[in-house]
Amino acid sequence: MNPRMVATVGTLLIAAALTACDSGTDADAPASTPAGEKTGLAAEVDKLTRPLDAYPVPTAKIDNARSLAGKTVYYVPITMQSPQFKVTLSTLTKAFDTVGIKVQSCDGKGTPTDVSACITQATDRKAAAIVTDAVPYVIAANAFGAAQAAGVPVIISNQIPDNARPASKTLAYIPAGGGPMQEALAKWVTVDSGGTAKVLINQGTDGPAPAVFVGQGKAVYEQSCPNCKITINQVSSANFSLIPSSTSSALLKNPDITYVESQFEQYLQPTQTGVQQASKIGSVKGLTGSVQLGGLQALASKNFLNAAAGQASAFQGWVDADAAMRLILGTELPQYTIPVRLFTRESIGSVKLTAEAEQSGEWYGPTTFTDEFKKIWGVS
């Protein structure tokens, strides 16, 4: 395997095994299980609601990170409509500040034309590297190819690897929590519904990855909740204004829906609007992935949302910085893991809902990870 492919998706918060058709009630527990102790899928869900004891910071040092001072790295998210990418941009900038690297952001606006223009701009301005977020290679293949040909290394994060364009000395993939978030939500729905959920998922169409991520969640339903029914409504960042009407239409066509999920938080508000238009706000439970501060505040207010899954976006910024420096310097990338956590109405009370907490990464684990990165970069 190419050494650049070692950065693979993972999560320290999701148990490997699934328990088939387990609603996780105490009645299902063995006689030896202490009263009140959760078992099976319910125990997995409970574990998913807790932060990590420690972040998975790589240990391999970067000996000459300071030599990159004065260089500029471009950050290109698929769309700045996503609150997640704003957090990652902020922490990426803070991480690079420690070694003197500048960050220039460029909004992909959810279209191949804008994404390609951003990448071309970075290439023309001789960026040291380009970090993209949730941008599939295929939608800007020519621009990505031209960047690498010009000697500008590219990192594609929050995406599935493109098998036709394998990782190389100028290309690295850093998948993140899209699939594990879907798995976490599917487990919660299975337990919450007692295995009888009817779920509408507003699934993104910005490249092939969203469908793959949703497929990981559907695999949980197939194994653990065979009586659950999943309906997919396709939505996109480029056609944002159509989300409310398509959501409403899907609900009217499927009146037995009991859960409505926005795959990513940027779709949450228009999804909720569509639920309201269908007069279903009081009869369905809302879910979202990629949750950030606004979504967690909505969860705490008990307004539509009942559960949300998120990935450690603040940590992602530091991981992206670490990977970019290694790629620029031509050193091997370690295996990265981006933690995922599940938030529910029952657990949200223990979460500090402030912008400072969002930026610090404390929702997912101890905030000392920044000092750990600076130590391996030789700038502590």
Rank of each mutant, 00 (worst) to 15 (best):
D371G: 15
T258I: 04
A149L: 09
C21M: 02
S236K: 14
D114R: 09
I119A: 14
A150I: 05
I232D: 04
S246F: 10
D63H: 06
A150C: 10
I328H: 12
K374G: 14
T247A: 08
A141I: 02
A95T: 06
P51K: 15
T368F: 03
V351F: 04
S224W: 00
K86Q: 10
Q203L: 11
S380I: 10
A357H: 13
A324K: 06
A140F: 03
Q81Y: 02
A312F: 05
C118T: 13
L251I: 04
L185F: 03
V235P: 07
G317K: 00
P339T: 05
V212K: 12
G179Y: 00
V212P: 09
D124T: 03
A141H: 00
D371K: 13
V87L: 14
K109E: 12
T331C: 09
P34T: 00
T25V: 08
V379M: 03
Y173C: 12
Q335K: 15
G361C: 06
G24D: 10
V220C: 07
C118W: 05
Q223C: 09
G194V: 02
C118N: 11
D97M: 01
F240D: 10
Q159V: 08
A314G: 13
R66W: 02
S241E: 07
S241F: 07
T170N: 10
Q81A: 07
T170C: 08
T368M: 07
A146I: 01
D114M: 08
I139K: 09
A20V: 11
N254F: 03
T120R: 11
D192S: 12
G195L: 00
A211D: 05
I78H: 06
I174V: 04
K187G: 12
G145T: 01
A146K: 08
G194K: 08
G194P: 12
V191A: 13
A186H: 06
E356D: 08
A314R: 05
T354A: 13
D133I: 08
Y75H: 11
D124C: 00
T98E: 00
N239L: 13
N303I: 07
L252V: 10
V76N: 12
V9F: 01
V99P: 02
D107G: 15
K352R: 09
G108P: 02
G215D: 07
G40T: 05
S168C: 11
P51D: 13
V214C: 01
L305V: 06
A20S: 14
S236G: 15
A324V: 04
S245E: 08
